[in-house]
């Protein structure tokens, strides 16, 4: 991400230090991760210490400090999905992809995350890939869904 674009985002938020989280969210959304150079630029522009940026970037779940895979798998581990066997779906996806929540595989194909509720508990257990919802998942079905992505 180039400096000009980061400056534009900072300017959109009027260079307000209190908008730090909003600025980082914009960068994260656009770039899908937060490169160090971007964080340094933000620190410089807003005049906030790197320690604060470092804390925020690791405190909130939305941020990633490493590049993400091409496909984002979100597995709901909300209570409704949990009592319907969501953890077994998660176990199976971990086995199939070889990664744990928070990780990205070596080919940068999949990033796996757990989420707390996707707001469609009627469809639980739910797996979402790149924003598409796959509802009422059974462990045995996950392989069929995952093989549609490359």
């Amino acid at each position: 991400m180039d400096t000009d674009r980061i400056d534009q985002i900072v300017d959109k938020h009027h260079g307000e230090p209190s908008s730090l989280i909003q600025i980082l969210l914009d960068i994260q959304t656009e770039n899908s991760w937060l490169p160090r150079e971007a964080l340094e630029r933000v620190a410089e522009r807003l005049q906030v210490p790197m320690t604060r940026i470092q804390h925020i970037a690791t405190f909130y779940k939305a941020f990633s400090l490493v590049p993400k895979g091409r496909h984002q798998i979100h597995i709901c581990v909300g209570t409704a999905c949990h009592v319907r066997g969501g953890s077994r779906v998660l176990d199976t996806v971990e086995d199939l992809t070889g990664i744990k929540p928070g990780e990205t595989d070596l080919d940068l194909k999949f990033s796996l995350e757990t989420v707390n509720c996707l707001g469609c508990c009627a469809l639980g257990p739910v797996m979402e890939i790149d924003g598409k919802t796959h509802g009422k998942m059974a462990p045995a079905q996950t392989a069929d869904v995952l093989k549609n992505y490359d």
Binding site: R36, M50, Q54, T58, S64, L65, T104
Partner: peptide, 11 residues
């Protein structure tokens, strides 16, 4: 571990 996953080593 998580440190790398979260990318902490970057910082």
């Amino acid at each position: 571990d998580r440190k790398a996953r979260k990318g902490l080593s970057v910082l």
